[in-house]
Nucleic acid binder design. Sequence first.
DNA 1: GTTAATGTTGAGAAATTTTGTCGGATATGT
DNA 2: ACATATCCGACAAAATTTCTCAACATTAAC
Lengths: 160, 160
Amino acid sequence: MRLSTTARYSLRALSDLSSRADNDPVSVSDIASRQDIPVTYLEQIFGKLRRGGILASIRGSQGGYILARPANDITVAEILQALGEPVIFGSCQTEKGCENAVTCPTFSLWRKVKGSVDEILRTTTLADIVGEKISLMTPAKTPDPEREEARRKATESKGE
Amino acid sequence: MRLSTTARYSLRALSDLSSRADNDPVSVSDIASRQDIPVTYLEQIFGKLRRGGILASIRGSQGGYILARPANDITVAEILQALGEPVIFGSCQTEKGCENAVTCPTFSLWRKVKGSVDEILRTTTLADIVGEKISLMTPAKTPDPEREEARRKATESKGE
DNA sequence: GTTAATGTTGAGAAATTTTGTCGGATATGT
DNA sequence: ACATATCCGACAAAATTTCTCAACATTAAC
C-alpha cells in the first residue's frame, strides 16, 4: 500500500507553486527543474489538475499556472481526486463493486481504514502543507512588471 | 493508493482458515479452491506468512497450515508486515529514507495519515475480522480423527 | 505579423511492480 | 512404497506506472 509518485510529484509541485504564488503564473518547466520532476510528465499532471479545478492556466508567452482557488480552500482530497488517484483499500466496494460485499469479512475493516484516511485528507489544505496560513489570495491575475525579471533569471540559471 | 491483491488474498485465506480452525491443518489447495485463488500463488503467500510467524505448517500427507497463534492475537498489521507489504504514504522516511525529510512540506501529512492507518491495523485482529470473539483457541494440534473424513469430502467435491 | 514561450493532447515506449506458473525437492501419514 | 502435502527458487505473464515524443494552439513581446 503506497502512494504513487504521481501523487507525490503533484503535492510537491503544488507546494512549490503556492509557496511562490504572488499571483504570477509559474511555468511547468520552472517547477519541474526546481523539484527535479520530468517536465513532460509534470505537464500531464498539471493538465489533470487544471481539468479538476485545482489549477488555472494562462497560455502563451510568459504564461504558466496559478492556483484556481486560494490555497486554504484546496484540500488534499480534492487534489487526489483530480488526479484520478482514488484512495481504495478493498478492491471491493468503491472500484467496480464486488458481489461479495455482504459476505466479505474484510469489508468493514477497509471501510474503516478508508474513512479514517479520507477524514485527514479532507481536512488538510494546501495552505496547511505549505505551512503558510494564507488568509486571502486573490486568484485574479494582476499583470505585474516584476515577474518578467524574476522569470528571466530563473530560466537562465537553469538553462532549460 | 490501493491494497495489493496479495494482501486481499491473504486476509481472505486467513479468514477462511481461522473460521474452520478446529486445530486441524488445512491444505493450501482446499483454501485456494474455496476462495478462488491460484493455488501456487497462495503457496507462496502462505510461505511468507509462515516465515512471518502468522502460520505454522504441518508437512506431509494430511498436513496443511494452522494459525501459529490464537486469532485474537494476530493483528492485521502483523499480517501485512509478514507479507512485506509496508504501509507507506510518503516515499520519504520509511522506505529508504529521503534526504529531503526536513524540508519536505508533505512529510508531516504522510506521517499523520500513516499513523492513523497503523493505529487501526494494529488494533484489529483476525478474530475481529472473522467476527468470532474467540476467547481461547489452543494453538497446539490435537490429532483429531474427524478431520480426515471432513477433508476427504471437501476434496472430492472440488475435484482439484 | 513574426517569433518565442508556453500550455494541450494523444499515442505510445520504457521501466517497474505485481501476479502467476513451473519443476522439482523435502517431509510425513498410511 | 505411495500419496499427499509443504517448500523453494527461478522465471513468465500481465498490469500498472512512469516517462517521452510529436504535433498543435494560444498568447506576449518585439
